[in-house]
């Protein structure tokens, strides 16, 4: 009993409250990454696994450019460009070479591991200190990081809202919804897929660049599992958005809730750390959460109509 008591007495509520803002800041950054995942997963209807690689690429490019004297703002812009190119490569592997999208993403991600290492001079991580460089965002000043994160999120959601409302953006959405109809309406669906994958990975690399500046280093493994965290954010955001606003939720609102999903994910992560649970268990925890949320729509349908239910209903009359 004394072990349990000492465990609880070692937890300080103030300590948790103190850590929450950092969770919010990180959640905002990963929310941007989740917006990228949203583009492929929800709009293009493709599960793109390149993001695990491009998130690290974003960090690697940003940090290496900054320590070689490039302006941090310019650095994340270049990082975004690198992500765009990597995403386009996944798209080309898929559309030009006929490789299934999920495999194309895995191949890109796998190749990027080597490329990311090469970018970082074959070191697994590279530090960038906020004391030496004027970083865009840093974990050293959490309130400011939250403000910067919010500005990034607002601008990105604004641009996405605009773009997906344009002729080109509509064509991209149509491609994800109904490829056959899109072709009949004269849309080049292969171009749209490449573009969607590029845009998605551009956003992911941008988030990777921000995350590296926030934490003060780039790590070749920083993107590991990014797709699952992104999916978690998208799904948590959708469920909460639906519950709070339902049908009134417009496209910009949906995007905002994806970011909210990212923040919630990081708040839970903070809580897990505070409870002194092993953070290595977080991956298991995340996978379970994502599996549950992905299963909910299916199980809901099953609850309404299923063979089991049909058998039960039928038995009531005839089998007696």
């Amino acid at each position: 009993m004394s072990a349990v008591a000492s465990y609880f007495s070692s937890l300080s509520l103030l300590g948790l409250l103190g850590r929450l803002p950092a969770g919010v800041a990180q959640g905002l950054i990963w929310g941007i990454m989740a917006l990228g995942v949203y583009v492929t997963f929800r709009l293009l209807d493709v599960a793109d696994l390149s993001v695990d690689g491009t998130f690290s690429t974003g960090g690697a490019v940003t940090v290496m450019l900054i320590i070689s004297g490039v302006n941090p703002w310019l650095a994340i812009l270049v990082a975004m460009l690198a992500g765009l190119i990597a995403g386009a490569i996944t798209g080309l592997l898929h559309t030009k070479l006929g490789i299934p999208a999920i495999l194309a993403g895995i191949l890109t991600q796998y190749a990027l591991y080597s490329i990311n290492l090469a970018i970082m001079g074959f070191k697994a991580n590279q530090a960038v200190s906020v004391d030496k460089y004027a970083l865009v965002i840093s974990g050293r000043n959490v309130p400011l990081a939250i403000v910067v994160g919010l500005i990034f999120v607002a601008v990105i959601i604004g641009i996405m809202y605009w773009f997906f409302g344009t002729e080109m953006g509509s064509a991209l959405r149509a491609t994800g919804c109904n490829p056959q109809m899109s072709k009949a309406q004269g849309i080049n669906i292969n171009s749209m897929k490449v573009m969607g994958l590029a845009l998605s990975n551009g956003l992911v690399a941008l988030a990777g660049g921000l995350a590296a500046q926030y934490s003060g280093f780039a790590d070749v493994n920083s993107g590991r599992g990014a797709i699952v965290i992104g999916l978690a954010a998208v799904i948590i955001g959708e469920v909460i958005g639906e519950a709070l606003l339902g049908k009134r939720l417009n496209f910009a609102g949906k995007l905002a809730f994806v970011v909210v999903g990212g923040i919630l994910y990081y708040l839970v992560y903070t809580l897990v750390l505070w409870l002194k649970l092993d953070s290595n268990l977080m991956k298991l925890f995340t996978a379970v959460i994502v599996a549950i949320f992905l299963a909910v729509p299916y199980l809901k349908g099953q609850a309404k109509t299923s063979f089991k239910k049909a058998a039960k209903n039928g038995n009531g009359k005839e089998a007696k």
Partner: peptide, 25 residues
Amino acid sequence: AATMEIEENLALAARRGKIRGLKWG
């Protein structure tokens, strides 16, 4: 396209065979 609005579907058809740019959809 099932997940798009009626007017969005018609707008796609109205642009059949035309270049789709960055003008509002």
